[in-house]
Design a protein around this nucleic acid. Structure first.
Lengths: 248, 248
DNA sequence: CCAAAAGTGTTAGACCTACACCCATGA
DNA sequence: TCATGGGTGTAGGTCTAACACTTTTGG
């Protein structure tokens, strides 16, 4: 069984080096069959899609999410959904908020628990997403036409991420394992929507002792090659626990 | 109609000058009739109570909350519930998280959206709560036996409050309109669970320009009377918007 | 005049802001 | 050798942490 009145949606953020993107899909009920191994749950989802042409429209994108099966734990289900969709284990996932306005979804009363996830798109292989007709990254400043209150959910998730990034070391989940300080800075600039001073940014980050110099450098760049850094997992966990001050 | 699988619970925090307390009730289905004016909704709630003796037990307290009526907006319903329970308008209310473990509630699968509310108990008249068999303040460090995962919800709400208080001027909602700096400091000490230096605390607070000297003093205290302060609403709103740094 | 809590200032160190030039690389 | 982005230091101001005594009040 699935809950007809209850769904789980994920706002998946990815940083491509220049822009903050969000992963949307056009869900395909036929394909969800692979995911919802319970026949009855699959039939119910399919039924919802069939009665609501908007859900299958070519022109409307939506957040990756489905109705919640009645026996699934909320957090685990969000995680499972993401793993199936992106092929990534150990995704950073955080509950944002539950949206419960009476008419937010056209086909029935649906309450949605939204999560946000942070991923590095280079670790993500869209071919691994067997559940959808289409899955695509969109620049958050240039979203396509989306279904229902998707835009509001994305904005709320973004506001939460913006808040979070100032007090916890979460932004790092959107970077490759080895990254340059310039990449890190532009990630912060984009999430905070604010230009930062390079020298001050570097001092601040380096005082945290979070970065480990890998002794490697970029290759094949037509300018001075930047040093590559990674994280000290111990310090990362400590900062995650204690919080940090990144109000810059 | 009410959602059998979906409820709204409020963790109501109150500060009495010495301890942080939480308001719990023993709900009384007969009395909920006044609140749930829709007959059918009331019958459904009553039915749930009758089939689950634990819900009516003399010995178990729970968070103020009910199943959600299918036509109600989530946030408005939480607000309405609080207003009816405490008699206070304009309560500071914030969504904490949705709890969705499969067996968190014994009588059926129930997902609960938890909110926290901050109130000043002196503005609160328990006699105004017509919905419960009993409503009572409990010290958060000394909770009674509670039903289901109430304790976990309270702890999560408290963690969220502790986080919130460091970056937004929310603590003030738990104080009387006119308060002393010592009251404000002990509120922060209790929420943050940490002793603070009086001189540094006062300097920091006063630099925010948030406090207005009322030119009044305590009366009938057997020691030097403290000055009473109130807030500048304009600055309060600005700080709420911009955030503040209260990591002390 | 005593008990109890209110109220206050200074100093040293840390952190923040603003700001401009040289360096390394590939084309 | 040029274009591009990488990388660095300093000075002035602000904020923070640590610390102890005097004042006011009622009993």
């Amino acid at each position: 069984m699935i809950f007809k009145n209850f769904s789980v949606d994920c706002v998946i953020f990815g940083f491509d080096g220049n822009k903050l993107n969000v992963l949307l899909w056009r869900a395909e009920p036929e394909l969800l069959e692979k995911f919802l191994t319970n026949k009855e749950e699959y039939e119910q989802i399919k039924d919802i899609f069939e009665k609501n042409p908007a859900l299958k429209s070519e022109n409307y994108w939506g957040l990756i999410g489905t109705h919640l099966p009645t026996e699934e734990d909320l957090d685990s289900y969000a995680k499972k959904l993401l793993q199936t969709t992106t092929g990534i284990e150990n995704i950073y996932l955080k509950q944002v908020q539950t949206f419960g306005a009476p008419n937010r979804v056209s086909y029935s009363r649906v309450l949605t628990v939204a999560y946000y996830a942070l991923i590095n798109p280079k670790n993500h292989n869209l071919k691994l997403s067997p559940l959808a007709q289409a899955v695509k990254w969109f620049d958050i400043d240039n979203l396509p036409e989306v279904i229902f209150d998707t835009k509001e959910i994305i904005q709320t998730a973004l506001a939460k991420l913006r808040e979070e990034v100032q007090y916890h070391p979460v932004g790092f989940h959107m970077l490759p394992k080895k990254f340059t300080l310039t990449e890190l800075q532009s990630l912060y600039e984009i999430v905070l929507d604010k230009k930062l001073d390079t020298r001050n940014f570097r001092k601040k980050i380096q005082n945290m002792n979070l970065l480990v110099d890998t002794n490697e450098k970029q290759t094949n760049v037509s300018h001075r090659a930047a040093k590559l850094y990674s994280f000290d997992v111990g310090i990362y966990n400590k900062l995650k626990e204690e919080g940090l001050n990144f109000r810059i």
